[in-house]
Design a protein around this nucleic acid. Structure first.
Lengths: 128, 128
DNA sequence: CGGGATCCCGTAGGATACTG
DNA sequence: CAGTATCCTACGGGATCCCG
């Protein structure tokens, strides 16, 4: 199985759409360490808004990746954690993150070279 | 290494932003099979526009994931293929795709249960 | 054939205010 | 504390036309 064109895109894309958005992986990473409360996540995930944290958590909960536990007290206390499936997703994501970390330098280099080459071509156009 | 919150998101997110968009993985999958020409990709990737194919290929080329080879003939002939780094990226992506394929049923089930439960709660509100 | 240049729209997602 | 409800904008991405 794997990334052959017609299975890869069709269903796997849905999953990528869920987990590949701006915040999901970050939330999963935080919950991979330990169970956390809403405000705790909001504080520790730099730049996320209440709205997006809620939306992200709801989506992950709906897909069975995180659990939401409400304690009926005042003030409210809600805890989030990874499901077993969520934990396996995190491991799968780790493979990708590892790839990214070990190739980030090569990518930066490729970008720099591409950009300088593009700038060169731009300079040539003015000469002609 | 891996998906711990503060290394994972910061740089790995950039990579995810490149490869997690609507078309990149699909293009990589196609080029993973073999070298292809622009029009060939456009024909085989269902629903992609010229513009997005161009934009996607440029981005992947810039990051050193695909190579672009121009043959100076009329009519023009341009071939795209994966770089060695692109090939390793495809393998890393395969891990994720494999996860998605083996959990898609569980996710569908989780969604169905979540939705029916939500509908139930909705019904209760009308009673009260 | 393989694009570049424009125009245009839907939506992801930020800011802010309110609530049980 | 843990959300929900609105409003609003930036931008991803489609459609279309043109060009070497």
């Amino acid at each position: 199985m794997g990334l052959h064109p017609h299975s890869a895109s069709c269903r796997a894309r849905e999953i990528l759409d869920r987990v590949g958005d701006k915040w999901s992986l970050m939330v999963i990473a935080m919950l991979g360490e330990r169970t956390r409360r809403f405000t705790e996540l909001k504080r520790d995930i730099d730049g996320i808004s209440q709205r997006m944290l809620t939306v992200t958590l709801r989506g992950l909960e709906r897909d069975g990746i995180v659990t939401r536990t409400v304690y009926p007290v005042m003030p409210p206390r809600v805890e989030y954690s990874l499901t077993p499936m969520g934990a396996t997703l995190m491991e799968a994501a780790n493979t990708f993150v590892a790839w990214a970390e070990s190739h980030i330098d090569a990518i930066d280099a490729a970008r720099a070279e591409y950009d300088s080459r593009a700038a060169e071509l731009e300079a040539l156009k003015k000469t002609s």
